[in-house]
Design a binder for these strands. Structure first.
Lengths: 248, 248
DNA sequence: CCAAAAGTGTTAGACCTACACCCATGA
DNA sequence: TCATGGGTGTAGGTCTAACACTTTTGG
């Protein structure tokens, strides 16, 4: 059984080509149709799909999420959605807020609890949901057409990420296990949408004691090879515990 | 019509006797009973009240809130709840998060969208809901027994307030229109739960340009009368706009 | 004149910002 | 040897933290 009026959506952020990306999907109309007509609990919800042609169109994309099952814990279910889409456990996942404006989904009343997740897109293959035609990363600055208030939800999630990143060393989740300081800096620049001073950035980040020098270097780069760092999970957890601040 | 599985609860904070207080209520069992049995849409929800005797007991208190009507906007409805309880419009109101653990309300599945509000308790009389036996302020450090996961909700709201207060000049909402710097400082000390240095506090707060000297003073105090200040709404709004930081 | 809270400045250290050049690598 | 990005230190200004005494008022 599902809660007819509650859905859970995940804004999945990844860092690709030095841009923040979001994972969006499109349904396969026939499969969706079939699913909706054969599933009793989606009977009433069918109207959303009938009345909103964008949902079946190639031009519109949506967030990954579904209605909340009665027997699922809210946070736990967000995790499951993520697991299903990315194959990943142990992802950084945070509730953004709940969207409950009256006409946010035309012709049907749903409130949507939005979460955001941070993952490193290089690490895992995307899994197509059985109902999906495609799943795709989009640069946050050139989003496609999106259904409903998805743009608003992504915007709020991004805002939350920007706040969060200033006080928690959250950004690490977006990078590969071993990364260069330049990558780290670029990530912060992209998230915060401002240039940072390289020398000051390095001083600050290194003073946190969060970085482990892996003693490795980049290879096959046409310039001086950068050192690779990983980050110290224990100190990370300790810092999170203490509710540090981390203004860059 | 109401959404059977969605409720909206307000954690209403006030500042009384140099303590943070929360507004809680108790239902009048007979009236509640009658309401539930005569109201069709609460038919299914009755089970919550039947299976949870604490709801009818004198010893247990709850947050102010109800199920979300189908035709009500989420944020708007939180405002209405507040209006009904306190008679106040234009209250500082912020969504905290949505609680959706499985057994948070025994024998029924509800997710609760929690808001917190800041008001100055001296300014308005509490209005009893028609179903209420009593409504009362409780010092946050000596809460009574509360139903369900209300303690958790209050805790999370308080945490959010503590975060919020460090980056937005939010605390003003808790004070009377004209206040002394000592009152302001005490408020911050209580919210942040730590002592602040008076001289440093005054320097900092006065440098923000947010305070208006009303040229008035306390009267009838057995010590040097303190200046009364009010705060400059225009600058306040401007600062909020700019997303300032306000670490005390 | 006493009790009680209001009000006020300075200094040392920490932190932040701005800024420019040499280094290592592969092509 | 060139192009590309990696890597480094210092000085000036701002912000923060610590700290103690005098003033005003009513009783």
């Amino acid at each position: 059984m599902i809660l007819q009026n509650v859905s859970v959506d995940c804004v999945i952020f990844g860092f690709k080509n030095n841009k923040i990306n979001v994972l969006l999907w499109q349904a396969e109309p026939e499969l969706l149709e079939k699913f909706l007509t054969t599933s009793k609990e989606y009977e009433q919800i069918k109207i959303i799909f009938e009345k909103n042609p964008a949902l079946k169109s190639d031009d519109y994309w949506g967030l990954i999420g579904t209605h909340l099952p009665t027997e699922e814990d809210l946070d736990g279910y967000a995790k499951k959605i993520l697991q299903t889409a990315t194959g990943l456990d142990n992802v950084y996942l945070k509730q953004v807020k709940t969207f409950g404006a009256l006409q946010r989904v035309p012709h049907y009343r749903v409130i949507t609890v939005a979460y955001y997740a941070l993952i490193n897109p290089d690490y895992h293959d995307l899994k197509l949901s059985p109902l999906a035609k495609s799943v795709k990363w989009f640069d946050i600055d050139s989003l496609p057409n999106v259904i409903f208030d998805v743009k608003d939800i992504i915007g709020k999630a991004l805002k939350k990420l920007r706040e969060e990143v200033q006080y928690h060393p959250v950004g690490f989740h977006l990078l590969p296990e071993k990364f260069t300081l330049t990558q780290l800096q670029t990530m912060y620049e992209v998230i915060l949408d401002k240039k940072l001073d390289t020398r000051n950035f390095r001083k600050k980040i290194q003073n946190m004691g969060l970085l482990i020098d892996t003693k490795e270097k980049q290879t096959n780069v046409a310039h001086r090879a950068a050192k690779l760092y990983s980050f110290d999970m224990d100190i990370y957890r300790q810092l999170v515990e203490e509710g540090l601040n981390f203004r860059i």
